[in-house]
């Protein structure tokens, strides 16, 4: 968690919507290099929409998302490929390619974007799997993995091309508390050793307090960020919605 203060992701005046419906209005925030940044909010608050805009899947109505200096919203062609190589994304359900085994899922980007020989790619893919604790499952198919293993495999695949920023969409969704805590530990370990920047969409309070350095909170009604800062500090927030969110289940939070 060595945040050195340099912004690596800058979201500026981002307004996202479909047709006439605006979902997010004028979002502004920065993610610093090396930090674990949380995007929080209730159902329908636009967390996933914000994430999709940040990784270039959803074109916003207005505004920009700078990733390491490149605006992913406007990037085209080679520039777009270059910026996509700087990010890794782990999707909510894993989104592992079901027709390939885990090693192939991790290797596919390396085969496409490097000149490494096949034996090297095999070795590197297994190294990435080792980093998430899945080396022994290398030749399993995604359908044979448990929920927690799928999330780990998805993180290994996101790590394949050495991204600078890793986006995780609801990493603990559908996991039991113990598996979820192990995944949190993995995120902390990777952040520590690889100096990666993480952007995590979540609403699991224990995970928020366990891993994130700073968070923003979105709300459906106000269509914008209602809070930004360290989760501990937001417990004392002036805003009643924010205060309520961060002070749920105090016992569980204390043990996390």
């Amino acid at each position: 968690m060595a945040a050195n203060g340099e912004p690596i992701v800058i979201v500026k005046d981002l307004t996202v919507g479909y047709g006439d419906t605006v979902i997010l209005q004028d979002i502004n925030f920065e993610v610093h290099t090396g930090e674990i940044f949380g995007i929080l909010g209730g159902s329908g608050s636009g967390k996933s929409t914000l994430l999709k805009s940040m990784i270039g899947l959803q074109t916003p109505l207005r505004g920009s998302v700078l990733i390491d200096g490149t605006n992913i919203v406007a990037a085209q062609g080679d520039e777009r490929v270059a910026v996509l190589k700087k990010i890794g994304v782990s999707y909510q359900s894993g989104a592992l390619f079901g027709s390939m085994n885990i090693v192939e899922n991790v290797s596919i980007v390396l085969e496409e974007f490097t000149d490494l020989p096949q034996s090297a790619i095999e070795l590197i893919a297994q190294m990435k799997l080792k980093a998430v604790g899945l080396q022994d499952a290398a030749y399993k198919m995604p359908a044979e993995l448990s929920g927690g293993m799928k999330k780990r495999a998805a993180i290994a695949r996101a790590l394949a091309i050495d991204p600078k920023v890793l986006f995780l969409d609801e990493p603990s969704a559908g996991l039991d508390p113990i598996t979820s805590a192990q995944l949190d530990q993995l995120i902390l370990d990777l952040s520590d050793s690889l100096h990666l920047t993480f952007v995590i969409v979540t609403h699991e309070l224990p995970s928020i307090f366990a891993v994130t350095d700073r968070v923003i909170m979105l709300e459906k009604e106000r269509k914008t960020t209602i809070a930004i800062g360290a989760p501990e500090a937001l417990r004392e927030s002036e805003d009643p919605t924010v205060r309520r969110f961060f002070n749920r289940q105090p016992a569980e939070v204390g043990s996390a």
Binding site: Q126, M127, K130, A131, Q135, A138, L190, S193, L194, H195
Partner: peptide
């Protein structure tokens, strides 16, 4: 040292072979 950390995360001493 910073690369030693990478080594610690990624080093494997064997390759898992396909069944």
């Amino acid at each position: 040292p910073q690369f030693q950390q990478l080594m610690a995360v990624f080093e494997i001493d064997r390759i898992v072979l396909p069944p």
